[in-house]
């Protein structure tokens, strides 16, 4: 395959997200402008100007009209996808890290980092249908985990919130009462900070990637460990194919150490694993820095990766990918 290279960002990529139809790709980077691209040919459609710090993550509503972004400028913003205009700004006292729309797009979860004596927190916000009715009040604020919460997503039927972060513990919270329902075991769980968390398309299981050089597959309802994928590099990003039983892990050596070694030693490939057999299928090379973000197109026929090198690489699979056998 010949990937499409998109050089719209001047700083390392942090997050990638496809809309539900799979025709738009949203990219966030440490420069301050999230960007939207056409997912088929990589043409830039527009940028969302207004943030004043690194943008850590984004989510798009199911009908692809609203975008929410979380940024280090201590705010999360709602955008109109089509025009790039700001609709609302949620202000916090510390940097916003992870954002995720609930099913139905009436609620959103936003995590904030520990900052200046404040602990990290998970905020649940109500999203109004009409942006003029939007308020910044939190429905609930969940606190407890030590260190940064790198990712928080909604569980099935919006009843729970799944979070993972620097303390390497995966937690499932009741989104109504804010009570902590489950925590991952010490033995089963990750040993180092969790960097990424992705749900499967049907939401029945989710995948976490960690700096302990492994990724783990968990059952959403019971938080039991299903599979572990072991690799030889810290995992920064994970995603799952919606079409095949494939898991993709991205990572590489720490960005600060990249220049000290040969680029081959950095292991900057996106590694494909068989979801069930936990065996490596192959690797896709190309980035010359660690991979920070991965996303699969909802049709499963292409995926994109974003690296510390500032490039988004959009890969449309060759036909023989779809009948790979181990």
């Amino acid at each position: 395959m010949r990937p499409i290279l998109m050089k719209g960002h001047e700083r390392p990529l942090t997050f990638l997200k496809y809309n539900r139809d799979g025709d738009l790709l949203f990219s966030c980077a440490k420069d301050h402008t999230p960007t939207v691209w056409f997912a088929d040919n990589g043409e830039r459609l527009g940028t969302y100007r207004g943030h004043n710090g690194a943008v850590w993550s984004c989510d798009v509503s199911r009908d692809s009209t609203r975008l929410i972004t979380g940024s280090a400028d201590q705010s999360a913003k709602l955008w109109d996808v089509q025009t790039g205009s700001q609709l609302f700004t949620f202000n916090f006292d510390s940097p916003a890290r992870s954002v995720d729309f609930a099913v139905g797009d009436k609620l959103a979860v936003i995590t904030t980092d520990p900052f200046m004596g404040l602990t990290s927190a998970i905020h649940i916000k109500r999203i109004a249908r009409d942006p003029s009715d939007q308020t910044g009040e939190s429905v609930a604020i969940l606190k407890g985990p030590q260190g940064r919460i790198n990712r928080a997503v909604w569980g099935s039927l919006n009843k729970t919130i799944i979070s993972g972060g620097e303390d390497a513990v995966i937690r499932i919270w009741d989104s109504e009462t804010g009570k902590l329902l489950k925590e991952s075991d010490k033995e089963d769980g990750h040993k180092k900070p969790i960097t990424s968390l992705t749900k499967s398309t049907d939401g029945s299981h989710f995948l976490t990637g960690s700096l302990d050089k492994s990724a783990k597959l968990w059952d959403t309802r019971t938080l039991t460990l299903i599979k572990t994928y072991v690799t030889e590099r810290p995992v920064n990003a994970v995603t799952m194919s919606p079409l095949l039983d494939h898991v993709v892990l991205g990572g590489g050596q720490d960005a600060s150490a990249v220049t000290t070694t040969d680029h081959r030693a950095g292991k900057f490939e996106a590694k494909f694993y068989d979801k069930i057999l936990q065996e490596e299928i192959g690797g896709v090379k190309g980035h010359f820095g660690p991979i920070n973000a991965l996303a699969f197109n909802p049709d499963g026929k292409s995926f994109s990766s974003g690296g510390e090198d500032g490039y988004v690489r959009l890969h449309h699979f060759d036909p023989d990918y779809f009948n790979i056998k181990l």
């Binding site: 395959m1 010949r2 990937p3 499409i4 290279l5 998109m6 050089k7 719209g8 691209w37 040919n41 990589g42 043409e43 830039r44 490939e269 494909f272 490596e280 299928i281 192959g282 690797g283 896709v284 090379k285 190309g286 690489r313 890969h315 990918y321 790979i324």
Partner: peptide, 14 residues
């Protein structure tokens, strides 16, 4: 801003 890679990338099997 958008370029098609000049290099053919394959899924490298271990």
């Amino acid at each position: 801003l958008t370029m098609v890679s000049t290099e053919e990338i394959i899924l490298e099997r271990p």
